[in-house]
């Protein structure tokens, strides 16, 4: 009897064709395994070795990790910068893209125009557009911002934006925020379009009057899938900060002021070819991103 019920459930569950299914998935799965799953595993293994691409790797235990946290001051700077970057740029771009999408969706005619205006920065190449921003943040009097501030009389000598340890990371974060309203912004816009109008009408009958009330009680709960997707995007982007740092501040930057974990990883892996040590940095980055991602998933799913 139970078997019969199970069989029926299976039939109702739907069509199942293992052979065709696996065949269709094979190209994706093979490439995905080769270039995403296998690399993560290799990273973990390499992080316990002293692999330098010249000689065979030797197992060194936790030596890479202990050196990283106890003796490598530059790593600690990179870690601090990455955390600062993630804590500021991640949430700011996330909240900004949500607010912008929310505002834009209240427009009818100009919606496409504003979507393009806010989305355009993030479709530009980080490297290319950073060079343009450098003309704004140029450390001499030719820079627009210095020129503007000097005209206002706020400063008398040009601020050395990209050469001063106090400012350079701020400039990097500013450009990252400017560029950051990418995929999450589009996801949110799409999410706003998929909202059910009945709920809004019901809410109005129930006495919800202000747009802010609607946002908290009706919109946000419905947007959970998009919110989660956007959050994961923002986190991964924030922890992966690299190309804007390099383009704006150079590698290495002044006193490592704009050195992030990926910069550190790149430095060790592809300039010094200390693959083992760089892998350890990669694993640390991976763990941080993964744990933060998990926490955000928990928080967003429970609300």
């Amino acid at each position: 009897m139970i078997i019969l019920v199970k069989k029926r459930q299976k039939a109702e569950f739907g069509y199942r064709n293992n052979k065709v299914g696996y065949l269709c998935m094979a190209p994706f799965l093979i490439l995905f395994f080769l270039f995403t799953i296998l690399p993560v595993l290799i990273s973990v293994v390499l992080s316990f070795t002293d692999y330098d691409m010249l000689s065979l790797p030797h197992f060194t235990g936790f030596q890479n990790y202990s050196y990283m946290f106890l003796e490598d001051d530059v790593f600690l700077i990179a870690l601090k910068n990455t955390m600062l970057f993630a804590v500021i740029v991640g949430p700011v771009t996330y909240i900004m893209s949500f607010m912008m999408a929310w505002l834009i969706c209240r427009l009818r005619k100009l919606r496409d125009f504003f979507s393009l205006a806010f989305y355009a920065p993030s479709i530009c190449s980080g490297v290319a557009i950073s060079t343009i921003w450098l003309y704004f943040f140029s450390p001499d009097a030719y820079g627009f911002i210095n020129n503007f501030l000097m005209n206002l009389g706020l400063i008398s000598t040009p601020i050395r934006w990209t050469l001063d340890t106090r400012y350079v990371f701020g400039v990097v974060m500013f450009i990252s925020i400017w560029m950051g309203m990418g995929t999450s912004f589009l996801t949110f816009i799409a999410g706003f379009q998929g909202l059910s109008e009945e709920l809004f009408e019901a809410a109005k009958i129930d006495g919800i009057r202000f747009a802010a009330q609607e946002l908290v009680y009706i919109t946000l709960p419905q947007m959970k899938p998009q919110l989660l997707f956007g959050a994961i995007n923002s986190i991964v982007a924030a922890f992966g900060a690299f190309d804007i740092c390099v383009s704006v501040a150079g590698l290495p930057s002044v006193d490592y002021a704009a050195h992030t974990l990926v910069c550190h990883l790149y430095d060790y892996a592809f300039i010094r070819f200390e693959m083992g040590y760089a892998s350890a940095a990669a694993v640390v980055l991976f763990l941080i991103t993964f744990v933060v991602g998990k926490i955000v998933r928990k928080v967003l799913a429970s609300e």
Binding site: P39, V40, I42, I232, V262, L265, A282, L285, T289, F290
Partner: peptide
């Protein structure tokens, strides 16, 4: 695959280079 959404591309860069 969902978990892989949370992999920063840089993490896989070294092994990818080797592969």
């Amino acid at each position: 695959i969902i978990a892989a959404l949370m992999f920063p591309a840089a993490v896989t860069q070294i092994p990818n280079y080797l592969i």
